[in-house]
Design a protein around this nucleic acid. Sequence first.
DNA 1: GTAACTGCAAAATATTTGCATCCTT
DNA 2: AAGGATGCAAATATTTTGCAGTTAC
Lengths: 138, 138
Amino acid sequence: MLYSIIETLKKNQLSITDSRKKILEMFIRSKGALAHADIEHQSGTEFDRVTIYRTLQTFVEKGIIHTIPTADNSVRYALCKDECGQGQHHDDHVHFICDECGTTYCLDHVTVPSVDLPAGFKATQTDLVVSGKCMRCN
Amino acid sequence: MLYSIIETLKKNQLSITDSRKKILEMFIRSKGALAHADIEHQSGTEFDRVTIYRTLQTFVEKGIIHTIPTADNSVRYALCKDECGQGQHHDDHVHFICDECGTTYCLDHVTVPSVDLPAGFKATQTDLVVSGKCMRCN
DNA sequence: GTAACTGCAAAATATTTGCATCCTT
DNA sequence: AAGGATGCAAATATTTTGCAGTTAC
């Protein structure tokens, strides 16, 4: 686990720092998605808000995590699949947001059906966001 | 056109005010979605920022417009279909966001394929957000 | 006339930037 | 040692709230 964290950082030419290790670990541990506030609270006063902003931004740029489109437009992040790399996101999976408890799930097993776009439109990414009640709240 | 604007407001028990008429008209005219900033700029100094915030919020509550989930988590709104009412949104259509020009299209004709969720999950809303290059930028 | 709506001021919140210091390599 | 990362302070941007004045009905 620790190994894969460091491996991931190295693979992306990022120096191994406490905040990066800790934040990446939080994503790996978490089944769902995390918002800036989640990270801030879970890590206590350990890191500066700004460091969290910068770390998240770096991770997104490197293709380690991605932002999740949400109906309420809160900013959430989740781990990318392995195929993602710098500037190349391929996260065409389904996200489920529970209206009740707010948890965001990445449903990796559910595939996004392909969509027929009107002529002239070219898709590079498809996000399917489902909201409703999750397993635990149902 | 003006008629339908006033009709819509009346139908939702909202008093007919300049800002509501103007902002609703902007949505009807616009093919795509609008962000707070779009409305602020297009309307010039006509309305206060706060009025725009409140008007948008009211429209969302009444089911006149809805927020669009976007990958970059910018807050955008688009007209709802007629079936939407207070607290009852049914906007299961596809949104397309152009990475080039930023325009957001509501692809009403494209239907959202149904998704098989894991056991215990119940969907109330499905948003399909496609990003890429639009007709004009391709 | 009354309730609802708007504009202004200000508070609260969220995000970005600059710079000095510290840490990783 | 050098470049990159962090923390702090502060600047910006965004959103919310309170209240007095105005407008719709």
